[in-house]
Design a protein around this nucleic acid. Sequence first.
DNA 1: GCAGATCGTCTGTCGAACAGACAGTATGCC
DNA 2: GGCATACTGTCTGTTCGACAGACGATCTGC
Lengths: 176, 176
Amino acid sequence: MPVAAHLDTDLGWALGVVFRAYVKAARSATDGIPGGHRGFQVLTAAAAETPGPGGRTQRAIAAQLGIDRTVMTYLLDDMERANLIARQADPADRRTRLIVATDHGRAVLAQLCRRLDRLEAHILSGLPDADQATLKGLLQLLASRLNELDPVASTCDVIEDINSEKQFPGTAGRVD
Amino acid sequence: MPVAAHLDTDLGWALGVVFRAYVKAARSATDGIPGGHRGFQVLTAAAAETPGPGGRTQRAIAAQLGIDRTVMTYLLDDMERANLIARQADPADRRTRLIVATDHGRAVLAQLCRRLDRLEAHILSGLPDADQATLKGLLQLLASRLNELDPVASTCDVIEDINSEKQFPGTAGRVD
DNA sequence: GCAGATCGTCTGTCGAACAGACAGTATGCC
DNA sequence: GGCATACTGTCTGTTCGACAGACGATCTGC
């Protein structure tokens, strides 16, 4: 049974290595920003000219960024305290809070964008120029697709399908 | 200044979305395995015919997988208790422990590989077939490059370079 | 006007990263 | 040989983030 027995062929391993490298590098670049690279993403969403799907509410941004609602609360607390964003009352729905970037937040964002652009280029520098653009483009396309249809729902079918052959080879030799 | 102000153009966002989707899906597929998809990766490294760089020591595997040493300890504890791997004494260096997969571990690994292969295909199904192979290939290539040269060391230069323009636009309006 | 759903908040639990310290061991130098 | 130094795996404690659950405030449908 020649199943892939090498880490090099595992998508999860490759994703993890690249993702961790990005996060580690971004941590230094976003030093001083509440929430690090996540704070940067929230700031980006708050300052976007065209709001993402669901508007600029706290929940919509959290969903788009894969941040938990409860984490979003104290993350925004910190960012509000640093005068990067502000919570505005939504006249249409008083339950929700609209997240907008302050002038100071926009200025910081511009700086961050430049720094992260260079960091991004450095992360990708292991690949030829043409491949860099290809990889980034495909990643963004895939991310958009995955973000549209809720990943949780979309994988449920596969999981059930997989679970049908779920039994692991005999628990013989089980110490427990 | 037309800096990328959209999340769609941010590499970190795309990486995060895809990575989280993978982890979330893998969590279901590796249900019952200690450590989830990380346990799977450890098992893969332990069962590989050709050991990774630095051999099959606990530290080498941790480095390759981006797992902290302290986390590795109790992760291996759990896997050893489930009879998936075993710690062997290294005759050449009695400080280190060699991690080897048990027969039961190899059998479970074969099952897991099949399941994760299908999950992987499902994650990538948002892209045309040709692009799937391209993306996976480029990711693996980049991951290998990033894994060779220590990411920490390699980014230091960039960080210092970036920090030269570090000052954020005036702290005017700072609440604190 | 009322039941049910939704949004943001709060609480508590859990997994994992990280720093720091430790014993056991290897390696270099004198 | 004897010793200082470095390394491996383990343990402790702290911190951060994901997650489940509950709550008050608010909106929506009947």
